[in-house]
Design a protein around this nucleic acid. Sequence first.
DNA 1: TAGATTGTTAATCGATTAACAATC
DNA 2: TAGATTGTTAATCGATTAACAATC
Lengths: 209, 209
Amino acid sequence: MGSISKHTLQRLPTYLAYLKSLPCADNACISAAAIAAALELGEVQVRKDLSAVGSAGKPRIGYPVNDLIQHLEYFLGYSTRNRAVLVGVGNLGLALLSYGGFADYGLDIVGAFDSNPALIGLQIDGRPVLSMDELPTFCQRENVQIGILAVPSAAAQPCCDALIAGGVRAVWNFAPVHLKAPDGVLIQRENMASSLALLSYHLKQPERN
Amino acid sequence: MGSISKHTLQRLPTYLAYLKSLPCADNACISAAAIAAALELGEVQVRKDLSAVGSAGKPRIGYPVNDLIQHLEYFLGYSTRNRAVLVGVGNLGLALLSYGGFADYGLDIVGAFDSNPALIGLQIDGRPVLSMDELPTFCQRENVQIGILAVPSAAAQPCCDALIAGGVRAVWNFAPVHLKAPDGVLIQRENMASSLALLSYHLKQPERN
DNA sequence: TAGATTGTTAATCGATTAACAATC
DNA sequence: TAGATTGTTAATCGATTAACAATC
């Protein structure tokens, strides 16, 4: 409950996406074994994960798909809106800003920041691009809870500090650096360099999986 | 060596990025404790990780920074080029294509594919956007080893299959779905939905770290 | 009832951390 | 030499998996 494991939490969106991809017959049920097979997980793991969020199945029948979807969406807070700002309107930042899909996960990007004067004053899909100076004030005034960092490595720590000064308690960091933050602030790094390391290491291996 | 753990492998790019960020005095050395403090890791873990890739330090002195950088770059294959194609030239795909930074990690995106006829025939920073039909042939002819998937969920599995048909052995999947592939093909998922789940769960917690 | 599937307790596995000997 | 730091073996911790009782 309060003590749900990080690994379990990370698998939940995958369960949800899979369940939503299913042809939706009302009242349909699915077994843990079927979910496990589709996602190539252990079936005990699926049952444990689902029971950790409080979903119950029925012996001999399985889990009601629609209930499960609702339960997972509720647990993951996809209907609770989280307000975010994006810092760094470069290639990646612009893509994250323009990509509409995060709204499905409860994430609303309400503003963007950049140090480039040529960008300041623009509106991107209705969100203003503002100067870095305004960041802490904006975050406080607009009740921003999440900061998305898509700035160069060297700028990442100062930008992170500015976000925290603005009261942000969760930072999604796309820069390939480790950031420091006080207790109570979560830094979640999207570590693309690590992903690439796994891919390239795999290719170096003679014939392993 | 051949049995380096996944977790270790994922930390290596972080060590490398940190070491590169250091002011470079030739012959400078650094202790495992210093690296650990900077990255908020255990110092034994740092020593174990470094020794796993064959880097040696000297008691009382530490690890020579420049050697370590070279060693890590070599191990991670940043100077060995890997040829990749990008599938799905939407917001995210275009950003990945335009972002020049992957070249530092040894990744060369040599072509892009999309099903939208309006995009086919374009050149983006010198890389052609081609039709999906040409994907397997292109991959084989151009010796492509990595496929980057930035397509909508529903298209991900067929696109993945096309990549594999073209001889690709490593797939970097940005779509929020689990993909199936034969043994010997690595699917590395960049799971943004999982990252968001961790961020939003943290915000729901009363006052935890 | 018999059989399938859940939920949970116990066992295993792998990664992290602690302890300590080796070495410069 | 004394002291700091490495490298490695043993202990701990947490997550996954196996075993099995409960239940529809």
